[in-house]
Structure formats: structure tokens, C-alpha cells
Design a protein around this nucleic acid. Structure first.
Lengths: 322, 322
DNA sequence: GCCATTCTCTGACTAGAGTCAGAGACCATG
DNA sequence: CATGGTCTCTGACTCTAGTCAGAGAATGGC
């Protein structure tokens, strides 16, 4: 009686997957990979191994209580896995680093983690293994894309500067003639135009690093322009561009615009395809930008904003050695 | 400098995914969901809601200590979320069911869980959502397939009977003329032929339910035959058939066979494709099975077993000869 | 040099999760 | 109906994770 392909609700699929996955893969996780080391200590050890730092640093990275961290460190130190020394820069806090023995224990966690992944994959035929790898790689990209943070920042902020530099590098590489397009010049321009009340600059970050950016500036009454639209190469195909574009449109609405224009270069084919998919139409050249060959415009009306990012609870960073 | 497509190791992909997923989705977090209910209790309540059962039942499903379960149930009962009554069939154990209030609490957990999944999916564009759903559905199938248990059981055991019934139903439906192919008759045959030392019967189970099966019997000196090969519809495309086939070949080797034959019906096209992929060659009819139209054979030599199941952790289901 | 602030450590405490060894109820069988 | 085996419950216990308040050292601004 049921239809043959009832268009599965992504929410149900996620839940179903989560159930299988945690039951069958995560279950073994609990007693920390059979290393005999309690979860908390293993997490801390792993984090120190990834990047040593001050106590304060580790506390914020792992979201631990200072008393709790202190105790965990004492245990690790007692087992000669870490060294803890006063930080010369501020002798209230201390710096932590792995000992040789600690590095060995870290490697052990690492090995156990790989072992476990191998245990999951091994029973499958080679064909199924590569199918699983492909599916998980795709899911990984999309999950990471879904949990990205979009924030409006000042173009002069460090995060924004890093993003714009990446943008300039890429545009330079793609359209050739690097000399003609200068990062410092771009940054100076942005600092003036992409700030409230006449503009805005948005950076998408994943685990603190910029992975995409875009700005809005004002061309005239009710008319805005999208600038500096960039998505990191490694994040192509995750819909980040479309999402950012929708977000920028909302930002433009809030700035009072009803039309949004943009220019781009014919070499940036994915970008052009994305603009067209998003309903942008080709228009005549509207500026004298030497780097632009294609020009687009769209109307932006008021309508209730859909799933724009928002506040995601940051979970504790679990130790899954990569 | 690096190659553009370096054929990713599935193990690395799994680890990478696991890291992103647990960090960002909080797979372990599936517990609390901010309901204020402790993890253990929430898990139990949820499981009872999925399917009420006896205490024993729940204990094996969740892998809990009997004392611990008893306490958890007492707590749930004190909160009037469940009713616990002696099982009329065996009054040592008790049956557990949700009260109305319990059903409400269950619905609450359910809602929180869906809410959480929605939170993950929501920021994505519709296109990315369905890509994520497709990737996770594929990964789900393969993860479940990878964690299946293959065990040799007596054909008379309950597990085996259920599998054979499913096999008979499906073959009947696929080749038409149900009346001619009888489950009881098949079961009676199997009980005699698919047991050591002349044969074997293997059932693949997932979470205690049979999802595939297959048997080996002896035709003559060194010659075995594969019988009752079946894979549940919902598990098609996960390589289960191939894996089971490899396993049965190993079983046949251990029975001393060097050639393996099988018959099948032309309507079972996927099965035929699989046999061919596995190196089976068409041969002439070698029996008078009315239900068979195609006949295959292969040589099975001794060689070091590849990723054949072997020593996977054996569940609580012990083989009981009846 | 003074003082509020910032930082870490310590001890005391709670709650959850789980184990273990009996005690006692219940069952199947000869 | 006796007996061995199976099942659940109870109490006593351990371990991990995490919170909280206060002591004391170091810092930065004045």
C-alpha cells in the first residue's frame, strides 16, 4: 500500500544512522578503546599530544573545570606521561607537554583507534569498503558543512583578513595576472565599505578556521553588491556557497536593500552556476572592474528567514586520534 | 606534488568521519538530550518504548547487569513510567510495559532526538540535505552489514527455522506457484542434510534477527552443494550475499569438499549475477529439482582465508542442539 | 608598594554507571 | 517431591566524572 519511493525525511535517516552507528561502533568506545585508561585522562592525553599548551589553554579546549584538570594532570604526571612546568610568561599557569613515554601512550591510543576502524571495515568486501568510504567521506563533508558557524566580523579582524587573503590568492590564480590584484589594496577597500551601516562582512568558520567568506556593500539607495565571495577548495560541493549567499541576502535585506548585484569572472564557472541556480540573472556591466567579465542581479524581497545558522551547542571534544 | 586522487584508505576515512561526527554531533551525547533523565534510565525507557518485553529480554538487548536493570526498573516504576508484572509463562521473570505517563516521557525523548537531528540537517540547503540523507543511508546499510554475526546453527534451531521460512516465502513469491514449495518439507530435509559431518547451516544475524542464511550439504566425495541461500530484501546491495558465499565456501572446505555446486531459478537475477561475479560457471543440470533452471559450479581450493568472519566476538546466543 | 584580579590547586562532595556475591523464588526433571 | 538449575532482587561496593568553595601564588594597573 505504501509508495515505492516515499522520499525519506533526512531527519529520519540521520536518526536511523545515528542509532546504528552508536550502537555498533560507538559502543566499544566507552571503555576507552580497551586501553585501560579512563576516558577523561585519554581525552586529555590526546589533546596534549595534538598540541601542547598551557593549562588554561587545555581547559578551554576541552571545556574542563580547573580543579578537575589539575587532578587529571597530576595523575598523568604521576604516570610520567607528561611534564608540567611553570609558564615563564605568566607563572601562575603552567605549560604541559608529553614525555617520551607520553608520546608512546599517545601512539598507542592512535593505534587502537586505527585498529578499531579496521575492525569495522575488514569484514566487508573490497567493493563494499570503497562504497562505505565514499559514503562516509560525503557524509563527513556535509556534516562539517552543516555545523559551520557564520559570523559577521569587521573586515579588519584577523579572521576576515585571513579569509580575504585566501580569496585574493585564489582569484589571482584562477584568472591569471596576479600582479594586477593586490591583497592589501583589497583589504584597505573592505575596511571602509564592508562595515555597518553601509555594508557587512561574513566569515564562515569551521573549528576556528575560515572556510568561506563574503561581503555586502552599498552601491546606491536600495541597491547592494556582493563582494569577496569565496569558498575554500576543500569545501566545494557542500552547498556552502549557496548557504552563504542566502545568508548575505538576508544581511542585505537588513541593510535595507531590495536589489543585489555582483560581478565575477568567467573563469569562476562553479560560482557562475551557483548564482544562476540561486535565481540571479545576467545583466550589463554596471562598473569598471577590470577583473570582472560577468554581471548579475537579483531582487531580494522580505520573507521569513529560513534555516539561517544560529547557536549550536559546542560539545566536548572527544579524543578520536586522527 | 601529491597525486590528485590517491585512493583513500577506508580506515582513514572511517576515522576521519568518526572524529567529525562525534565532535560535532556528539554521538555519545545521544543520552541525555537535556531531558534531565540520566543516561541509563533514558536508554532503558526508550528501549521499553520501542518494544516492551521481559526483564530478561531487556537485559540482553541492552547488555545490562541484572542487578542494575532491577534497580533502574524500580526507579522507573517509582516514577510511574512503567508497569512491571510477573510473566505468566515463567513467573521468575517479569514483563515490563510503559504506562500512559511513560509513553508520554518516551514521546518526549523521541521529540528531543528528532529535534536534535533536525538541528543538524536544517542549516543545509535542500539539495545538500538529500545528499546527506543518501550518504548516511548508504553508510548505515554498510555499517550494519559490517557488524553482522555469522554463526553455524542447527537447521532445527529457531533462528534457522525463521530464516528458512523467509527463504521459502521469497522463493515462492519470486518463482510463482507457491503451492509446490513447502516450508515444512524444506525444514525436514534440512534437519537431516545440513548438519555435521555432512553439512552445515549458517545464519547471519543483525541485532538477533536473521538477515541472511545459507547451507552446505554433501552430494558425493569432495562435492558439496550450496542450499537455502537467502538475503533479506532490506539488506540487498550490502555485499552480504558475497560475504556469506565466501563463508560457506570456507565451511565447505572444512567439510573436505573441493567442488561446490548450486542450483537456482532464472527469476533470481541478482543471485545469478552474484554467483557469476564470485567465479561460478554455468554447468548442465545435475539434479531433478523442479524449482531450478540454472546450475553452477566452482572449484574451491585451499588458500589462506581472507577477511572471513572467523573469530568475531560471540554473542550470548549459544548453540543448543535440540 | 598596594590592591583587586586572575589563575591554579586542594579537599569535600554528588551523581551516574556498573560489578559482584549471595538470598530467595520459581522451573523442569527423574 | 526432592533436587539442581535458572531467574530476579538486594545490599555493598568501586570507579569515573564533574562541581564547588576557598586558600594561596602571581599579575597588572595605579
Amino acid at each position: 500500500m505504501t509508495a515505492s519511493a516515499p522520499a525519506p525525511d533526512p531527519v529520519d535517516v540521520v536518526r536511523r544512522f545515528n542509532r546504528s552507528y552508536t550502537q555498533r561502533v560507538g559502543a566499544l568506545d566507552e571503555s576507552f578503546l580497551g586501553s585501560g585508561m579512563p576516558l577523561g585522562r585519554a581525552r586529555l592525553l590526546y589533546e596534549i599530544g595534538v598540541e601542547p599548551g598551557t593549562t588554561q589553554d587545555l581547559r578551554t579546549r576541552l571545556g574542563l573545570d580547573s580543579g578537575y584538570l589539575s587532578r587529571l594532570l597530576r595523575d598523568l604526571e604521576a604516570d610520567a606521561l607528561v611534564t608540567v612546568e611553570p609558564d615563564p610568561a605568566d607563572r601562575r599557569r603552567r605549560t604541559v607537554a608529553l614525555t617520551d613515554e607520553g608520546r608512546q601512550a599517545w601512539g598507542d591510543l592512535e593505534r587502537r583507534s586505527a585498529e578499531r576502524a579496521r575492525g569495522l571495515v575488514e569484514p566487508l568486501t573490497a567493493r563494499q569498503q570503497s562504497r562505505l568510504a565514499a559514503a562516509l567521506a560525503e557524509a563527513d563533508l556535509l556534516v562539517r558543512a552543516a555545523t559551520i558557524e557564520l559570523e559577521t566580523v569587521a573586515p579588519a579582524a584577523d579572521l576576515a583578513r585571513r579569509a580575504v587573503r585566501a580569496y585574493v590568492d585564489e582569484v589571482g590564480a584562477r584568472i591569471g595576472g596576479t600582479g594586477t590584484f593586490d591583497a592589501d589594496e583589497a583589504l584597505a577597500d573592505d575596511a571602509a565599505r564592508l562595515v555597518a551601516p553601509r555594508g557587512a562582512f561574513v566569515v564562515a568558520t569551521s573549528a576556528g578556521s575560515p572556510v568561506a567568506c563574503g561581503g555586502v556593500q552599498t552601491l546606491g539607495p536600495g541597491v547592494g553588491e556582493i563582494k569577496r565571495m569565496w569558498v575554500d577548495d576543500a569545501w566545494r560541493g557542500a552547498g556552502l556557497g549557496s548557504r552563504l549567499l542566502r545568508h548575505l541576502e538576508q544581511v542585505a535585506r537588513e541593510l535595507g536593500h531590495t536589489e543585489l548585484r555582483l560581478d565575477t569572472h568567467e573563469a569562476l564557472t562553479e560560482a557562475i552556476a551557483m548564482y544562476e541556480r540561486a535565481g540571479y540573472r545576467r545583466i550589463e556591466r554596471y562598473n569598471d572592474n577590470l577583473h570582472a567579465t560577468h554581471f548579475f542581479s537579483t531582487e531580494i524581497r522580505e520573507f521569513p528567514r529560513r534555516g539561517v545558522p544560529g547557536r549550536r551547542r559546542v560539545g566536548p571534544c572527544l579524543p578520536h586520534p586522527t
